[in-house]
């Protein structure tokens, strides 16, 4: 048993977390001052969407200990539901796949998008509850592949590889959020609500049971907790948040195709969660911010031939993530390793 007081033992870790926080936030401010507000608004919107995904995935991966790589599937279901219901594009004059476009308002399609994601999550979750650990990773991998296949091959509904365009922005009465700043504010409000909900979950007795499930599922079951119910509940809540992020994404980009929902995006999402730290909401926000700054900040590397800049960005990003995992495997402000 250690004779060092608890407060002293925790101090270096707290210092590192503070440094990481100051570093990422300082970086964000420096970037904003450097690049001006226009591009920063774009990056902040990307951050808001990825942060919703990261925070919601952390509920499942970090707090409950279920390593899911299928989150991108729920993101895609939310996005496609929004696109199909809200798009008012006309494909009649084109010799491509034509689908009906009801042209619903954003706020009419949004609850359907979130509810449909929840329904799919319930169905999938009931099956996935039978699996744990490595097998769970594999089946969630399968879910991501199946979801992508649906987006690509259900051509009568999704237009397959052609994608769906003219997806509208949110509108309050006659006020359409078609400005980038207005949309960013809306996305940040959604992020705020998601963070608040997650905070309420993880600080409640429900959240403490989730943490106990991560530490020892059998032990918590011995105390009479219906582990499968808790796992299913957090799985569905997390999926609904991903569905919300998908709906926001579709509205922001105004065009989606299956390429936005490939397995690689799920891997990037896992990387963001680990980068920020498992089982910490603040870590997921920090991880998403650091990731966006890393990826987009490297657009400004000034000394490379133009045709190699894209590849160089990916190499540098990969190396930085590997270095981080080597020297800080629990992430920027995390307390647990994967």
């Amino acid at each position: 048993m250690s004779v060092i007081p608890q407060a002293l033992r925790e101090r270096p870790r707290a210092d590192i977390e503070r440094v990481a926080t100051v570093f990422v936030l300082g970086w964000a401010v420096a970037f904003m001052l450097w690049q001006g507000t226009g591009f920063t608004v774009t990056l902040m919107t990307v951050f808001a969407i990825w942060a919703i995904l990261a925070v919601s995935l952390n509920l499942v991966v970090g707090f409950t200990g279920l390593l899911s790589v299928g989150h991108i599937g729920f993101f895609g279901i939310g996005a496609y539901t929004m696109a199909i219901l809200a798009s008012d594009a006309s494909y009649d004059q084109l010799r491509t796949e034509a689908i009906p476009t009801p042209g619903w308002p954003f706020f009419a399609a949004l609850p359907i998008a979130v509810a449909l994601t929840a329904l799919v999550a319930i169905g999938v979750g009931i099956v996935f509850n039978r699996f744990r650990d490595d097998i769970f990773v594999l089946v969630s991998f399968g879910f991501a592949i199946i979801a992508f296949s649906f987006f690509l091959n259900l051509r009568e509904i999704t237009r397959g590889a052609f994608g769906i365009h003219e997806i509208p922005r949110p509108a309050f009465g006659g006020w359409v959020l078609d400005g980038e700043v207005e949309f960013l504010v809306f996305a940040l409000v959604c992020l705020g609500l998601v963070v608040l909900l997650c905070w309420l979950i993880v600080t409640s007795s429900f959240g403490r049971v989730l943490t106990a499930i991560r530490e020892d599922e059998e032990a918590i079951a011995v105390f009479g907790y219906q582990v499968t119910h808790f796992k299913l509940a957090v799985w569905v809540l997390s999926a609904m948040m991903a569905g919300l992020a998908g709906a926001l994404f579709a509205s922001w980009t105004s065009f989606i195709d299956p390429n936005s929902f490939i397995l690689l995006e799920s891997m990037l999402l896992i990387a963001i969660v680990i980068l920020g730290g498992l089982a910490t909401i603040w870590g997921s926000l920090l991880g998403a911010m650091a990731f966006v700054l890393l990826e987009e900040g490297m657009r400004f590397l000034p000394f490379l031939p133009a045709e190699f800049v894209g590849q160089a960005r990916q190499v540098v990003l990969g190396v930085l993530l590997v270095l981080l995992m080597l020297f800080r495997p629990q992430g920027l402000v995390g307390r647990y390793r994967l």
Binding site: Q35, G38, F39, I256, A306, R313
Partner: peptide, 22 residues
């Protein structure tokens, strides 16, 4: 001024905004 749009709508939007805003 060359930007990578990665064959994706989201990256095309960020690349576009970088080119026009910055």
């Amino acid at each position: 001024v060359v930007e990578d749009s990665k064959c994706s709508a989201q990256d095309a939007i960020t690349a576009y905004n970088k080119l026009t805003d910055v």
